[in-house]
Amino acid sequence: MTENKLTHFNDDGEPSMVDINHKENTVRVARATGKITMKPETLKKILDIKIKKGEVLNIAKLAGIMAAKKTDQLIPLCHTIPLSYVNMDLQTDKKKSCIKVIAEASLIGKTGVEMEAFTAVSIALLTIYDMCKAVDRGMIISDIKLTHKSGGKSGEFNARV
């Protein structure tokens, strides 16, 4: 397999799950981030726990963790993996009227956990939107990206800030 070859296609160009049997088990870690921007009054309601659907930040954290554990059921050709750890960090920024979501996933295994970190961030952001849409349909989800990946043959990746 060359570095520039798409890995989820066989020699005939058809979708194919990557064979990871030959890979070594290593500690794999991935971190992804994203944000949701909203009206200042929406963020205030979240912080004051005044959203009718409940306590938004903790529910979004839980949704992210649950989503990471179900990534293989959502993304075709994604391996079922035994996650060892998923952590969600939600940071509020009153000046920019946004919430930044950071997800970290890890395991000891043969394949990476980037998709699990991405899924956790995405679902946490969507949960915030869902819980708050009655008061602010103009919220914007943006800047979802991988910020760190380590483990495996390709080594370490850290996004430029």
Rank of each mutant, 00 (worst) to 15 (best):
A124T: 02
V121C: 13
Y85V: 05
T92Y: 01
A117C: 11
E114A: 09
T80Q: 13
L83V: 10
A103G: 09
E114L: 14
Q73M: 15
C98M: 12
K96C: 00
I102C: 13
L83N: 11
K96A: 05
S106M: 10
L90D: 02
V86G: 09
I102E: 11
A117M: 09
K96T: 04
I75L: 14
I99E: 00
K94N: 07
T111P: 08
Q73V: 04
I102F: 09
K110W: 10
C98L: 14
L83T: 10
T80K: 14
G112H: 08
S84T: 08
G109D: 04
V113E: 02
T111E: 02
D89T: 15
K110H: 08
L125F: 01
A117K: 09
S84I: 04
E104R: 11
L107K: 08
F118E: 10
M115H: 07
A103T: 11
V121D: 04
L74T: 11
Q73K: 15
A103I: 12
K100G: 01
V113Y: 01
P76L: 12
P82N: 15
I108L: 02
V121I: 09
K95T: 14
G109Y: 04
V121H: 07
D89S: 14
S84M: 13
K95P: 03
Y85R: 12
L83S: 11
M88C: 05
I99C: 00
E104F: 08
K110T: 14
D93G: 04
I123A: 01
I81D: 01
M115K: 12
V101L: 06
F118K: 10
V101G: 03
A105R: 05
M115I: 14
K96L: 09
L125C: 05
D93F: 06
L77C: 07
I99R: 00
T111Y: 11
L126R: 00
L74N: 07
I99N: 00
N87K: 15
Q73P: 00
M88T: 05
P82L: 04
T92E: 08
P82E: 13
G109R: 07
M88H: 05
L125P: 06
V113K: 02
A105Y: 06
M115R: 09
V101W: 04
D93R: 11
V101Q: 03
M115A: 10
S122Q: 06
I108F: 01
Q73I: 06
L126N: 04
S122V: 04
Q73N: 15
S97R: 09
A124K: 03
I123C: 01
P82Y: 02
